[in-house]
Structure formats: structure tokens, C-alpha cells
């Protein structure tokens, strides 16, 4: 609005700017088209599906457009345990991944700074699991944790696990699988912030009577907050929607099924598309709200 006052005199100046914005628009066009086609269209279609009503007297999987708010109420109440498990498991797995990844990232990013070769080697090791398919890795863990595996036999032998105990199919196995699978997503963002951590701040902390532990809590952790935030988001969001680890074919059982498994079953097996779509939208909405509150609460804008 304020520019309007100068429009007549600044005509010469604004012209190149307008041309630049046209160029920018042209360059953004493929991205915008892509988003319209592959994000917005499916999203709208999902929303429409979630309101569909059953076709009276129709086959399984026959639905007509409608405005069935009841879909949401029904699916939320029926699958409440799945919803709670999804966010509960994801939260626990995120905490474990953070606790495991932070020392790794700290070592690579801070302690190993003097040896770039060691740094790159360790980073490669962090990423190395990605060279093998996600499914294969999870299947491998199923083997390792299965009832006849040396791990389980050993745990039974030392009576940590009762004689009739299992590992697969338990919440432990599911959270273990989630933690394992998302550790690289936690480690890499943590590494990038810790790698830039200025050691002089730690020296200043030490100089100002803070013990190494206090310096860590009061200086290192707040300064690595951007990494902690992005790492936890990159772990929590996909973990909450994950349906591989908790699946009966992998590390879970029907008692550990998460929201993702419920969506999968409704879409592919039960062909109850409205419920599946409603659950998807619930998942999306809850994640959006949680993440919004989390980012706002952690006050990362000061560090950016």
C-alpha cells in the first residue's frame, strides 16, 4: 500500500522488480503445479472421502458422496487405543532416539572436529542403514528378536524374560524398531547444529564457574535447540504415522497396532474408505496441533 504513493515517480525502478517477480513465478511454476497435482488434489479427495456415506444396499466398498460427520466420531471412538498407541509409542521412541543420538552427534560434531576423516567415517556409519531397505532392516530385527533367536533364549536363560515371554509382538519391540529406524533422522540434524557449536561459549561457561555438567545444561543444550527441535520433529512425525514396525508381519501384533495400521487395514483390507480417510485426517490434525504447540513452546525463533 505504501508503495502506491511512489508509483508514478518510481515507475522506472519498479519495472525491473516486476520482471524479476515474473521470473520468480516462472521458476516456481513447476513446483506449484506439482503441489497442486500431488498434494492439494489428493488432500481434497481425502477430505471428500472422509465424509462419504455408505451406499444403501451396495457392495462392500461402495460409497456415495455425503456429509457424514459421524465418520469422524465413529472412527475416533473405535480406534482411540490405536490413536493413543501411535502418539505414545512415537513419543517414547523420540525420547529414546534423542537420548541415544545426542552423544553420537556430540562426538561427531564436537569431539571429532580435529579429525575430519573420522567425522566423515562416523557420519557414513550413521547413514549406512539407509543403504538397506527399511523393510529388510525391520524384518532382520524380527528375526533377531524372534522366539527362537539367541537373544530371546539368552534373556530367558538369565530370567530377564519369563519362560513364556516374547519380544516380538510387544510394545517393547515396536518402540525398539521405531527408535532404531529413526535414529539417523535424529542424529543428522543434531550433528549439523553441534558441528557449528562455538567451543568458546563452553569455555566462557567454564570461566564463569559452571561445571562441565552445568555448562552442558545451560549452554550446550540451549544452543543445540534448533537441532533438537528438527530432530525430534523428523522422528516424531513419521513415527506417529508408521505402520511397518507395529504391523503383525514385522515387530508388532494386533495388540500393538498403531493408527497407521488401522488406516492401512481400513483402506486395503476392510475397504472402509471413509473411516480410513477420517483417521488420516485425524492423524494429520493431531500432528499439526502438537507440532505447532511444541515449536511455539520451545521458542526456537530466538536462535534462528
Amino acid at each position: 500500500m505504501a508503495f502506491a504513493a511512489f508509483a508514478s515517480t518510481d515507475a522506472v525502478v519498479t519495472k525491473p522488480a516486476r520482471r524479476a517477480s515474473t521470473v520468480a513465478l516462472v521458476m516456481l511454476l513447476p513446483g506449484i503445479l506439482y503441489m497442486l497435482l500431488f498434494f492439494l488434489t489428493p488432500l481434497i479427495s481425502l477430505v471428500i472421502t472422509s465424509f462419504q456415506a455408505e451406499l444403501p444396499g451396495g457392495d462392500i466398498g461402495d460409497y456415495v458422496p455425503g456429509l457424514q460427520w459421524q465418520n469422524y466420531v465413529d472412527s475416533a471412538s473405535e480406534y482411540l487405543p490405536h490413536i493413543l498407541r501411535a502418539f505414545g509409542y512415537a513419543l517414547v521412541a523420540t525420547v529414546f532416539a534423542l537420548v541415544i543420538s545426542y552423544p553420537i552427534a556430540y562426538f561427531i560434531g564436537v569431539k571429532a572436529r580435529r579429525w575430519p576423516l573420522l567425522q566423515s567415517l562416523m557420519l557414513t556409519l550413521v547413514i549406512a542403514p539407509f543403504f538397506i531397505s527399511f523393510l529388510l532392516r525391520t524384518l532382520a530385527w524380527k528375526q533377531i528378536l524372534s522366539d527362537e533367536s539367541p537373544v530371546v533364549l539368552a534373556l530367558k536363560a538369565v530370567a530377564i524374560l519369563p519362560a513364556d515371554g516374547h519380544l516380538t509382538g510387544t510394545p517393547f519391540a515396536v518402540i525398539f524398531g521405531l527408535t532404531y529406524n529413526f535414529i539417523p533422522f535424529m542424529t543428522l540434524p543434531l550433528y549439523t547444529t553441534l558441528e557449528r557449536l562455538d567451543i568458546r561459549f563452553l569455555e566462557a561457561g567454564n570461566d564463569l564457574y559452571a561445571s562441565p555438567a552445568t555448562t552442558f545444561l545451560k549452554v550446550t543444550v540451549p544452543l543445540s535447540m534448533p537441532g533438537i527441535i528438527s530432530g525430534t520433529l523428523l522422528t516424531f512425525i513419521p513415527a506417529a504415522g508408521d505402520y511397518i514396525n507395529a504391523s503383525r508381519d514385522f515387530l508388532g501384533s494386533s495388540k500393538t497396532a498403531m493408527l497407521g495400521n488401522a488406516i492401512e487395514a481400513n483402506f486395503l483390507t476392510l475397504q472402509n474408505y471413509p473411516v480410513a480417510a477420517a483417521l488420516s485426517i485425524i492423524l494429520m490434525a493431531v500432528i499439526l496441533i502438537l507440532v505447532g504447540v511444541y515449536v511455539r513452546r520451545s521458542g526456537t525463533e530466538d536462535l534462528l
Partner: peptide, 19 residues
């Protein structure tokens, strides 16, 4: 140890905690 010495430093880079 550094944090137990009765000494304070004004660092060349200031090292003021940005957070």
C-alpha cells in the same frame, strides 16, 4: 579446574551467550 579458579576472562570474541 577452570570453573573452580577465582579468575574471569573477557574473551576476544566476547563469547556472550546468544540464547
Amino acid at each position: 579446574k577452570s570453573f573452580q579458579r577465582p579468575v574471569n576472562t573477557v574473551f576476544q570474541s566476547y563469547a556472550l551467550f546468544p540464547h
